[in-house]
């Protein structure tokens, strides 16, 4: 079956086999490798994307059910010449080590700041508690997000 949806502002069509996940379809059929596959059970946030404005784990979205949705992935954040401010902050504050969790964190942070431009430390921690990072211990991530406090994403 084919699904039609908007991905990063572009109309896309993708062949879908059975109940496979949006994550698999983004990565393997559309070549959007930014969302990462780390647990396939919604417990790590590495595959985080935004579907119709909601922050979701793309591994838990059935691709066949994404017909007609608007999907934003990490690839849709930077422009040709410029990083998204969240990406810039992550780079500058050393919030990236192995980087496998980074795309999910970037999307979740952008979503947070869009809804809450100046989150407190506990708000940042809770809003990003669905994204696991195994390398940084979260310190640099916190500093990166805090550095954007007040800045509109």
């Amino acid at each position: 079956m084919n699904v039609h949806f908007t991905v990063n502002g572009e109309e896309r069509e993708a062949a879908v086999q059975g109940p496979e996940s949006l994550l698999f379809v983004l990565r393997e059929r559309l070549g959007l490798l930014g969302a990462k596959d780390a647990c396939e059970q919604g417990e790590c946030g590495s595959c985080t994307v935004i579907v119709d404005g909601d922050l979701v784990c793309s591994c838990l979205v059935m691709a066949a059910d994404a017909e007609g949705t608007e999907v934003l992935t990490v690839e849709g954040l930077a422009t040709e010449d410029e990083l998204h401010p969240v990406q810039q902050a992550f780079v500058e504050h050393g919030a990236v080590q192995c980087g496998f969790c980074t795309p999910g964190f970037v999307v979740a942070t952008a979503h947070l700041l869009e809804h809450q431009p100046a989150p407190t430390e506990p708000e940042i921690r809770e809003a990003l508690s669905g994204n696991i990072c195994r390398c940084t211990g979260y310190g640099a991530l916190l500093r990166a997000v805090q550095s954007m406090g007040g800045a509109s994403p």
């Binding site: 990565r27 959007l32 490798l33 930014g34 969302a35 990462k36 596959d37 992935t73 990490v74 690839e75 954040l77 930077a78 990083l83 969240v86 990406q87 992550f90 780079v91 500058e92 050393g94 990236v96 980087g99 496998f100 980074t102 795309p103 970037v106």
Partner: peptide, 18 residues
């Protein structure tokens, strides 16, 4: 700053699984 920071934040860094 690490040079692979930019591609990693953009989801453009190639991991073994990619």
């Amino acid at each position: 700053l690490r040079p692979d920071g930019v591609p990693k934040t953009k989801g453009a860094f190639a991991y073994a699984s990619d």
